[in-house]
Amino acid sequence: MKGMGILVMGSALIMVVFVIIMPFVQIFFQPVRGEITNIELRTEAYTMGNALAAAGVYMGSALRFSAYQAMHDTGMQGGWDAIPAGKSFQAGEGSYAIWHNGSDVSPSEDELKASLGKSVAAWLGKYREKGFRFLNDYSVRLPVYSPVLVSEFTGSSFSVSAMPDSRMSIQKGSQDGSTNVLLERTASLQDSFSYPYLELFR
């Protein structure tokens, strides 16, 4: 009987050891069950949205600077973006527009608007071709602006509208390539100017 008691005790001891050890063995081979996982999804969508908004502000100020420059350039050409043949004369190294040659040959309001629009579009192109970068890392793709329309000269003010060929956009992907965010924004530009520009040519 003593031998049987030892056998029973031994069996029980083996079972106890199993009971204690096996769960840990199981956890070791199935680590996912007990793992506490921290996942942080960092999304830059709002910053990208800010980049688009800032690009809109950038192109808005670019439109104003382009209009100022276009008014200067067009004025220097007598109201044309390029002086038409037969309406210029040479004086020294300069070429000047003829406004009166027995009759009024100065640019009409429509010609002035068209010339101003072309010049604004050319200057806007300089700003958009350099792209726009926001907070070092966010590059916004800017559209081509054409045509640029100049409104009627009403009193001493007029407005300029620039039509984009597409929306402005920003695209950014995560480093591991798992996500790719594309945001777009309407890109049309319009502003008004209070200058008696037409009166300069009358």
């Binding site: 942080e40 999804l41 999304t43 969508a45 709002y46 910053t47 907070l135």
Partner: peptide, 8 residues
Amino acid sequence: TVAQEDAG
């Protein structure tokens, strides 16, 4: 955690 960056 979803961290929305709103820089700028």
